[in-house]
Nucleic acid binder design. Structure first.
Lengths: 131, 131
DNA sequence: TTCTATACTTACCAAAAAGAGAGTGAAGAT
DNA sequence: ATCTTCACTCTCTTTTTGGTAAGTATAGAA
């Protein structure tokens, strides 16, 4: 097994707690809005709340706030509040966040390289279903 | 921007349709059960339905069936039905599925390398919230 | 004849996630 | 005096998700 290999200790047994933790982190981090916010902040950083709202296509205020809070909590980005009126808040990636962006790059590129293949597979599957 | 770079054409503009498609594929593929099934099939392939049910911790029959169907439709795995009684069905990764597993490997390793950092960030964040 | 094994499908229900929309607060412009 | 801006927060409703449990089909064992 490729993915799991790195969690194995010398006896070849994976630690279920580490496994669960990593799975939890991946589950958290591999979500739609997190990925899209990550992408926008990789392109330009820092960005203000409203800028992100405009750029992350389809995100609601609520989901953006929630996503940003989670990412802040996980140390993926920093939130800088300026004590001005109207309020101004800037979000910027941390090195940790940038690292995640790079790791995701592999999946992104896989999807780019294979989306035609996936499309074909889907058409073939749906075709077979009908008949 | 790192991740998005590969979708840019010569004018430096990303195609929104390709973007949306890739985002959709990633959203589909980056789900908890898909990742865990991928992992089990990377470790051993082919596997029967009941084997997977036992190995993928916490998955229900319904979710496993659903996940396997989605993955089959996307061309990530093959489903081989034997005309015997009681039924026998074997699932195996396709090269496409194996490629995805490898791509995810980067994220998996990122999570492994940084889970302590994330834990520390969370504790710091939660600490600040209380006071 | 009844039981078991296998790989599902279907129906129902509860819980969780997400969307919509209104409300907030205070400085500065009109 | 009213309006606008920004970054939310809060409530209400709808949608989606996922779990549970029952049903199905059939060959061979007991």
């Amino acid at each position: 097994m490729i993915a799991k290999a790195a969690t194995e200790n010398t006896s070849g047994v994976t630690d279920p707690r580490l496994d669960a933790l990593v799975t939890e982190i991946i589950g958290r981090v591999a979500d739609k809005w997190t990925m899209l916010v990550l992408e926008e902040l990789e392109a330009e950083s820092p960005l203000r709340f409203t800028r992100l709202l405009e750029r992350v296509d389809g995100v609601s205020q609520k989901m953006l706030t929630q996503t940003l809070r989670h990412m802040e909590r996980d140390g993926l980005l920093t939130r800088k509040v300026y004590a001005v009126v109207p309020p101004k808040v800037e979000y910027a990636l941390t090195p940790l966040g940038r690292g995640l962006g790079e790791a995701f790059c592999g999946v992104w590129r896989w999807a780019e390289r294979h989306f035609e293949e996936i499309g074909a597979a889907r058409r073939a599957f749906d075709d077979g279903r009908d008949r």
